[in-house]
């Protein structure tokens, strides 16, 4: 049987989690790889938490929040917008492909966009080897470089 990527999604309670609920209510289909974790705001997601998620065995991580300007906490997602690109660059630097980490704004009314996003993200990961493998081969290339992870 083919490899199936493991995906963890951190979704803000007010927009993206509700968007995922709407996808359910609309019976839109997407692959079961994603497991959703609800957080009050995408601003709650610290870079460490994302790194930890990769370390625990995730092949992909999604951070989804409200559109800028629509944040339930007014500017919580402004922090997400600033932190996550830095994290993404860092992950890429350490050998984790950018396709494995997605930050996106999905509102409560965008169930369709949510389902489409999950489908695309999952497909993208299926095209990659498991993260463990990526890291192994990277470690072989630069021994000791990833012991910190």
């Amino acid at each position: 049987m083919a490899y199936e990527p493991k995906i963890i999604g951190f979704l803000c309670n007010w927009c993206s989690y509700a968007g995922a609920d709407l996808a359910g209510m609309s019976r839109l289909k997407y692959p079961p790889n994603l497991k959703i974790i609800r957080v009050p705001c995408s601003g709650r997601i610290s870079p460490e938490l994302v790194i930890r998620t990769f370390r625990e065995g995730a092949d992909g991580v999604m951070v989804l929040g409200c559109h800028i300007g629509d944040c339930h906490y007014s500017t919580g997602n402004h922090r997400t917008a600033r932190r996550m690109p830095v994290l993404k660059a860092l992950l890429e630097f350490t050998g984790i492909e950018p396709e494995r980490f997605l930050v996106k704004w999905i509102s409560a009314s965008e169930g369709e966009l949510f389902a489409e996003t999950v489908r695309e993200f999952t497909e993208g990961l299926r095209a990659l080897p498991p993260l463990q493998k990526t890291m192994q081969s990277a470690c072989e290339a630069w021994p000791g470089a990833f012991s910190a992870l």
Partner: peptide
């Protein structure tokens, strides 16, 4: 405090 957690992440 509204409990967004942005501070906890920072």
């Amino acid at each position: 405090c509204k409990g967004c957690g942005t501070c906890a992440a920072a």
